[in-house]
């Protein structure tokens, strides 16, 4: 099976935020440094996926680890950004509930050869809800345009990626069962949103205020 060109573009886009994060490491606030580490992890994760794929080894199980790391990293960043104690508590609760659900799924329901759709959708919905809260908070409290804040670009990326891919991800096993042509076409949407997300992530590192 040949890998479409756009898949390579999407894969290459993972390097952009990781490189931007490392470039601006010194001036970044600590939550942004955690986010940089997440971007670096995502790049390594991608390299591992490709390597395993090349050797014909299933890489589905890797995706099941990526969700929880992504959710915890981004919720940590959002948690650091919001000033209200109630919202902080909500984000902590979201992280706790998701971790518990993820562990239960991991030990009792997960098939390492299959991608866990349910748990991925839960992560996306949690992150989308958190993004909406953060975007509202930025607009409500900021004295400068929202686009001047790193957290705005990250929340925007998370929201758009979630909106664009939540249904496709939820039905990914169904789409895969319909054949590679269907999978290829639908996954182009996913790759498109991946590129947008990574550009927005990289853009966030250019902001002076977190």
């Amino acid at each position: 099976m040949t890998i479409p060109v756009f898949a390579h573009v999407a894969a290459a886009s993972y390097f952009i935020p990781a490189a931007a994060g490392l470039w601006f490491w010194k001036r970044s606030a600590s939550p942004m440094r955690i986010f940089t580490l997440f971007c670096v992890y995502s790049t390594l994760h991608l390299v591992m996926e490709f390597t395993l794929g090349r050797f014909g080894i299933s890489n589905q199980f890797l995706l099941n680890y990526h969700q929880i790391i992504e959710l915890l990293s981004i919720l940590y960043l959002f948690h650091a950004r919001v000033p209200e104690r109630r919202t902080k508590f909500l984000f902590r609760s979201m992280a706790g509930v998701y971790s518990a659900v993820w562990l239960v799924n991991k030990f009792f329901y997960e098939d390492p050869e299959r991608f866990s759709e349910g748990i991925t959708i839960a992560a996306m919905l949690f992150l989308m809800a958190a993004s909406v809260i953060v975007l509202n908070m930025i607009v409500r409290t900021s004295t400068e345009p929202a686009t001047h804040h790193a957290s705005f670009w990250i929340a925007l990326a998370v929201l758009l990626y979630g909106a664009g891919t939540v249904i496709i991800t939820g039905y990914s096993n169904t789409i895969l069962a319909m054949g590679m042509t269907a999978f290829d076409i639908f996954w182009h949407i996913n790759w498109g949103f991946t590129v947008i997300t990574n550009i927005f992530y990289a853009r966030s590192f250019l902001c002076r205020s977190f």
């Binding site: 909406v132 975007l135 509202n136 930025i138 607009v139 900021s142 345009p145 929202a146 686009t147 925007l156 929201l159 758009l160 979630g162 909106a163 664009g164 891919t165 939540v166 249904i167 496709i168 949407i189």
Partner: peptide
């Protein structure tokens, strides 16, 4: 469904940016 959700997300972002301005 994907198109509808994306449309809603873009509309929301548009509202957020206008409010911010």
């Amino acid at each position: 469904a994907t198109a509808v959700i994306v449309l809603f997300a873009f509309a929301y972002v548009f509202v957020i940016l206008s409010s911010s301005r």
